[in-house]
Design a protein around this nucleic acid. Structure first.
Lengths: 342, 342
DNA sequence: GGCAAATGTGCAATCGTTTGCACATTTGTT
DNA sequence: AACAAATGTGCAAACGATTGCACATTTGCC
């Protein structure tokens, strides 16, 4: 009658006429084999009939496991993250784990708070999508032995597991695509260097240019402080007014590319006639823009799914080694890139 | 040493030289007043020093409260939902509650499963964004006295709290806007009637047309089975080939409007020259379409925030009455509507 | 100064499960 | 047939916090 009418293991035991511990063993697949099949049948029947649901709080108290994991992201309204979240949920699948979600808005103090709160809830593991390259929070979790997987962004810490996109490959797809269209003078709108994505794409750009035998002019790399449309506009405007010659822009992110669109229009130019542009992410609806954006599709859903699987592995097999995984992105050719205008 | 090195109330008590129950009372704001200020100070100091964090599982077991709520939505990758989720999180704010999230993909069996799972985790309340007008799950939660708030969609059940958009007002904004542009013959692409949003917008369309003195032709209401682009395309194509005369389409949702865009193009017509179109939702990026979509902006974030506040109220003041709240949407005029073409 | 009331703290039971241990009972071995 | 091993189930003690009750001690009052 207590517990909002919920059935306890004791009531199931009474109904069958066995001891509560027997019911517990029947309901736990690992110990079920130790009980007589006949009793197993009676207990499972009774449990179903009464609608028994184990109380996770009690179980968690006893086992020190809550079957709950924490997921911390910058902001769910950024279209990058919903597919990751969804992938995490699906990757958790039937493992019995449930996720609690937190948004940090990229504010360090909110990250710390959110993780403290999650840890007070005894989460069994944590997925962080907020990592900076040098992140004290990552170091702390690692030190405390909390199973941890970084997703989307990674950090420069020893022994951390991560699932990220292969940014160098992505940039190389963009550069080689533009090169195949005759572009040889490329500019790059780089993301924040404190984030692994910004840094990796920036370095990838320079190294791939060199590998392709193209002149990689550091003056044609424009820095930004955030992956935002405003910053993209600012950076692209600076490139255009800089006087340096280039025929295409490789943006480190779709939003930066959108800003570039605007700067191109502001300068009285046209994409792709005067300047080709590539993005990075393949956000929803960028296929609907004018022109539709050529971009690098990151497998966000798969990133999330793999992160969840990896975390479950980390939780359930204590000494599994940390691994850094990079998933392969894909070039999506649309209307924002065209053969170079002679 | 146990509990992954986490400090228990007992250790704090020992350090100060008081009984664990005293520590508990100090740490609970409601009972703190019963303890001598001097001891309060010593205990709080010791707790901070040791980095004490209460074990939520133990607390939840004893108090039957987990400070956790469930949130069930159809699909996080639908851009409608992230702002709602974010609003819920922010609405929970400092109340101490945390949300666990589930996706149902609009599949009834997955809804049932997810809610069962959440209830096994002893959630204190539930926010449902998945409600159908006649929803057994809603009835069940109500019957069991589980604090429940419906958001976005509502259900036809007595005594259920809900926070939804004022759909009739939204439709009326669209219809009156079109009418002011000279349109008198309007078609409606309606959403699924099993959903409160589909039904309310459909009914709103018919009643507002009548109220404006316009002929509301039932043949100019096209039904759909889902709020999807495909269904919008199908419905709009049918309207266009139906031979009935109309100059504007009021779509029950932005995705349906996108489908209409496609059907209009397929028919060799142009929006807004030949046909004006209005959407509903103001999804991200519909301002970037060609033409930019005139639509009704739903305050999704506020919907979520109010739902969370309402739920906390329901949980914490047991006999608070159920209320159905409708928030006011806003007309966003863009390029998909123009004066009627004579 | 003596008694009643108020105040502050400790005691111990409790929440619902899990699990090491003990004890019957059955099975196998010689 | 006697004893050892294997098997299946019950017992009871945890897990860590909360809270009704009881008991000291202090305070207030006449």
């Amino acid at each position: 009658m207590s517990n909002r009418g919920r059935i306890t293991i004791r009531e199931v035991a009474e109904k069958v006429g066995v001891h509560p511990s027997t019911v517990s063993r029947v309901l736990n697949p690992a110990t079920r084999g130790r009980i007589t099949p006949e009793i197993v049948a009676k207990v499972t029947d009774a449990a179903n009939e009464l609608g028994y649901q184990p109380n996770q709080a009690a179980r968690g108290l006893r086992t020190r496991r809550t079957n709950t994991i924490g997921v911390l992201i910058p902001d769910i309204t950024n279209p990058l993250f919903p597919p990751i979240i969804r992938g995490i949920e699906d990757g958790l699948g039937t493992s019995g784990y449930t996720a609690i979600l937190g948004n940090s808005d990229n504010i360090a103090a909110r990250e710390t708070d959110a993780v403290a709160n999650m840890r007070a809830r005894q989460i069994d593991g944590l997925i962080l999508a907020t990592a900076r390259r040098d992140d004290p929070l990552v170091a702390e979790c690692l030190k405390d032995g909390l199973p941890l997987v970084l997703v989307n962004r990674t950090a420069e810490a020893d022994g951390v597991s991560s699932i990220v996109n292969d940014d160098v490959l992505g940039i190389s797809l963009a550069v080689r695509h533009l090169n195949s269209l005759g572009h040889t003078k490329l500019a790059h709108i780089a993301g924040p260097r404190a984030l692994s994505t910004g840094e990796a794409r920036r370095r990838g750009f320079l190294s791939v240019m060199a590998a392709e035998g193209l002149a990689a002019d550091e003056n044609l790399v424009a820095e930004t402080r955030a992956f935002s449309e405003d910053e993209g506009l600012r950076a692209a405007a600076k490139l255009i007014s800089g006087g340096k010659d280039f025929t295409a822009i490789v943006a480190a992110n779709d939003l930066l590319a959108l800003g570039a669109y605007e700067a191109i229009g502001d300068a009285g130019l046209s994409c792709p006639i005067d300047l080709s542009v590539t993005g990075f992410n393949d956000m929803p609806f960028v296929d609907r823009l004018t022109p539709p954006l050529t971009t690098i599709r990151i497998p966000h859903y798969e990133l999330g799914r793999e992160a969840a699987r990896r975390l479950v592995e980390l939780i359930e097999t204590p000494n599994s080694p940390a691994r850094a995984t990079a998933l392969r992105p894909e070039l999506i050719i649309r209307g924002s890139t065209a053969t170079v205008n002679p």
